[in-house]
Design a protein around this nucleic acid. Structure first.
Lengths: 334, 334
DNA sequence: CTGAAAGCGCTTACAG
DNA sequence: CTGAAAGCGCTTACAG
């Protein structure tokens, strides 16, 4: 079916040298005279030679593939992160393979095993909800380095690059206090999601520092989607009609809250404040523009690649934890 | 650095059989007794064996990798498409490798060559702006099957899965006529982008069927981004202050138009209508909700994988062209 | 029903 | 400075 590929053998023949020499030239190894070097390069060019990386990898054990496993590829937070992972990896000569765990433990396992079989040099993983110390055992067993990002695992020792969720919650809490909101509801997100727990704790921490009647009325977990936000908003306002601020697990949930408030005839930002996390690009253009917390997905992606490359080169060093400080973006919705 | 991987050899030893037998069992080939089969399976399980696909691929020439090359990974249209490509490919036992051409011809070339080197079984490609018949020559030379999606190449013969852009333009044109808009401006998008040309032509076609003073004032190409839409809107309204409808190359451009109109003190959907293409999920929750054209990225992704798998199995058949009909979603912005 | 052996396309010590 | 040869982990005709 497929045409026979041009191999190093043909290149060698065409250039009138041995295959060892071709390999040396192509990998810039050993001492090769300039004349030979040019001959080989020209021959490779003429024949349109593309080296078979499977063979290289098999023989040398070196791989130039990076595996990226995220919870939801179609979430802009992760697609931005992925875009930078891909770009930085490419600069270092690595190709990135991306897979979607769809936040399912089982699928995460399959995806990781498949990628090991493909011979990836290492992994960048945002752990699926419910992951624990045993989840990544297989990577240790196979000696494949990995770094976690965005979603950490409480008890697990590995490199981690993410943002400080507790601090993000604190920023939101302080802001709400300053603006005088008193009846607050936290909506959306999977309860097993450790980032959610941290954000909520940060929020409670900030609110608790004040002696006042301020309290969280409701903690309403649910799908971290627009639809989830819509429904959580409706039921929150039914159960706690005096709610004056909705803290949303992410901007998707927040846009669902906008929709629900509109339906209920409440003015977003006037009758009820809405605040999100992520700062997706569109949120600046919503009506009213969304107050949210910027979490720098692209920076996380970039840092994760750097950490992984370091780990691939030297798997012995101590684990590193990078937590980027979040930053509050105040707009019209609060 | 890496632990020595468990190979078929260890499995064979552990099961007390030859490596050929292990291979047969694992690939369900040949006649193997149930007893032996079980022994091998158990041994593989015990040792946590994951077959080295590089070796399989090298020997058999068969690959289970699919390469997906898109113009912009962080655009939700493509990340949704990618999500379904990945899912359907996974069901068929394929792993998908995604790369971002960033709509650059040069990067597209690099990415394709790298992937060939990785031994992908085939490609799904949304052609970068400016691609032509020579761009994908390298794939033909190497005998690697591919299908194009979303962005086609006028003169090129290959499978294609996309949507009917002309028809999408017609839908928009008819809708604007019905609502009585007369001063229309088409904004955003790369002028070399064939989808843009087709949409514009469809729009002109629909408008031209009417005998009236309706006309397109301005065709303002530009970046297909929020920022691009913002700026194009400002300059359009400066040059043609009577503009009553903005047709935006995509929803990103449209949200930029919202922003600009807000800044100019015009009411979106009342003073100036805005219409987009893509129907990104959030657009339903914008204020006002966006009238846009649904283009079914997930369906395109799914169909593209199916077409590619057919092409991998039988590269001789005639090229197939799938054009999904677009569908107008009318909301508050028109 | 099972196994010995060749070979996929490379890389890499080693010899000259 | 260049090349002959072994070997990475598999698959596959072929022999028994």
């Amino acid at each position: 079916m497929r045409k026979p590929r041009v191999s190093i053998k043909q290149v060698a023949k065409h250039a009138g040298v041995s295959i060892a020499t071709v390999s040396h030239v192509l990998n810039n190894k050993g001492n090769i005279s300039d004349a030979t070097r040019k001959q080989v390069r020209d021959a490779a060019q003429d024949l349109g030679f593309i080296p078979n990386r499977n063979a290289s990898r098999l023989r040398s054990g070196q791989s130039l593939l990076i595996g990226l496993v995220v919870n939801d590829i179609s979430n802009p937070f992760f697609s931005e992160l992925a875009a930078d992972v891909e770009a930085v990896a490419a600069d270092a000569g690595y190709l990135s393979v991306m897979a979607n765990s769809r936040d399912s433990l089982e699928r995460q396992k399959t995806v990781i095993e498949t990628m090991i079989g493909q011979g990836v040099a290492g992994f960048i993983i945002s752990a699926a909800s419910g992951s624990d110390e045993t989840t990544f055992e297989v990577l240790k067993e196979h000696g494949v380095p990995f770094v976690l990002c965005v979603r950490d695992i409480a008890t697990y020792a590995a490199d981690f690059v993410g943002f400080d969720n507790f601090q993000a919650g604190v920023l939101v809490g302080r802001h709400l206090l300053e603006r005088g909101y008193r009846d607050i509801c936290f909506i959306g997100g999977d309860q097993r999601n450790i980032n959610r727990t941290d954000r909520l704790n940060g929020l409670l921490h900030a609110l608790g520092q004040q002696e006042s009647g301020i309290c969280i009325h409701l903690d309403m977990p649910g799908p971290a989607t627009q639809k989830g936000g819509f429904e959580a908003t409706l039921s929150s306002l039914k159960r706690a009609p005096r709610t004056d601020a909705l803290v949303c697990f992410n901007d998707y949930v927040a846009i669902g809250a906008y929709e629900a408030l509109y339906k209920l005839g409440k003015r977003t930002g006037v009758d009820v404040a809405v605040i999100g996390f992520d700062n997706v690009p569109e949120s600046a253009a919503w009506n009213p523009p969304l107050t949210t917390v910027e979490l720098f997905p692209r920076t996380i992606g970039r840092r994760a690649v750097i950490a992984l490359l370091a780990r691939i080169t030297d798997n012995g060093s101590a684990f590193e934890r990078v937590q980027l400080p979040p930053s509050l973006v105040v707009r019209g919705s609060t």
